[in-house]
Nucleic acid binder design. Structure first.
Lengths: 201, 201
DNA sequence: TGCGAATGTGAGTAATTGCTCACATTTTTC
DNA sequence: GAAAAATGTGAGCAATTACTCACATTCGCA
């Protein structure tokens, strides 16, 4: 009873790492251009310029390809959010930087971000994904508490949801001006937090 | 060249109408309980207690089943929103009623609403669906303009998006208290609109 | 009661999908 | 440079899917 096919857990050569990344990016591009329903394993391999067999050397199944793409995107967001958190002392500026990070993340490739969200729902989160989500929530919470000391986990979740919702809706409606969207997102978030130091002119 | 199979466009007997409704409700229940990936035509028919052949007598294809469910839900929302619009003269109360309508609509069967949204993205809207969406947008715009005379289509879209986002996020996180969610949604919407008459105590 | 129309049935089909495996090619190692 | 390890290949399989069709059952109505 020999195992004829032991998928590579770790890529040891640079070539293999390039293949792995090409596969993940191919998935991203398919989501972006053709949507979640077009995301088949054979299509991913074709778009990545590799054979279907190669795909299954580095990913045990389809969902792990999506999971890796999700990790890639979330890790980038976490970096961005932490950078915003390290900014100056002004709480309003910090929230502004947070919204900028969210907007960059969601609006850089809006169709991809939206389709990825759609696909994500059907996926159970693995431990790494849970840790990443928790870290993002914590980092955002730290920023929000500068404006509203009572901000909790639900507050952080709501803020993320508001950012996503407005950006996605705008992208769907064909809006292309980030400045205008930024203004609306910021208005919603600040309004939602309703900080004591904030008053209407 | 005879057509061996002419799908019924209109149900002429009550029995047929019941079958049609059972099919749509079966789709709703599958979405609610098992998610979009479980929504197969055979499963819909089974859950509805009819044969797969009967399903295809009243619906030309799978997407039209989903489209009908979508119409059912949207029409109910439109009624609710219009009722909110007909309410008293207080603009704040009107927006509150609007949020209530949205919350009822989204929170009555949260999982179903979410999965239906997921499925919707992959569907092109037909003319009836477009008209329904436009009517909802108009009705919401009418309410919002009482608070903010400059509210336009983008404003209405954003408000709907904010409502959905917060409710969905809350439902995903396992929240069950509508009052608490309502308070947050209202805060976000009012804050987003930032009406002149509104000031922080 | 009987007849045509309306409604209901479900095994079967063609297409698609995730995935495997026996094998070829390239790189590393000695 | 040769063996071994790592990487790459793609035809094809098993499972699933949306959908069809030849036929059975029930209803409306004389």
């Amino acid at each position: 009873m020999s195992k004829p096919h032991q998928p590579r857990k770790h890529a040891r050569q640079a070539r293999a790492r390039a293949t792995q990344e090409a596969i993940v990016e191919a998935a991203a591009r398919i989501l972006e251009a053709d949507g979640a329903s077009a995301l088949t394993t054979n299509r991913i391999a074709e778009r990545a310029g590799v054979s279907i067999g190669s795909l299954y050397q580095y990913f045990p199944d389809k969902r792990s390809v999506i999971a890796q793409l999700l990790r890639r995107e979330r890790a980038a967001l976490l970096d961005d959010v932490r950078a915003a958190s390290d900014g100056g002392g002004d709480p309003f500026a910090a929230v502004g930087a947070l919204v900028d990070a969210a907007l960059r993340h969601q609006f850089a490739r809006p169709a991809m971000a939206m389709e990825l969200e759609r696909v994500e729902t059907g996926l159970a989160m693995d431990n790494e994904e849970i840790a990443l989500a928790a870290a993002i929530e914590t980092a955002i919470g730290n920023i929000l508490r500068r404006l509203d000391p009572q901000a909790d986990a639900a507050t952080a979740r709501d803020v993320v949801a508001i950012c996503r919702a407005i950006v996605n809706t705008a992208a769907l409606a064909g809006e292309t001006d980030p400045t205008r969207i930024r203004e609306r997102v910021l208005r919603a978030v600040i309004g939602y937090l309703r900080p004591p130091a904030f008053s209407i002119p």
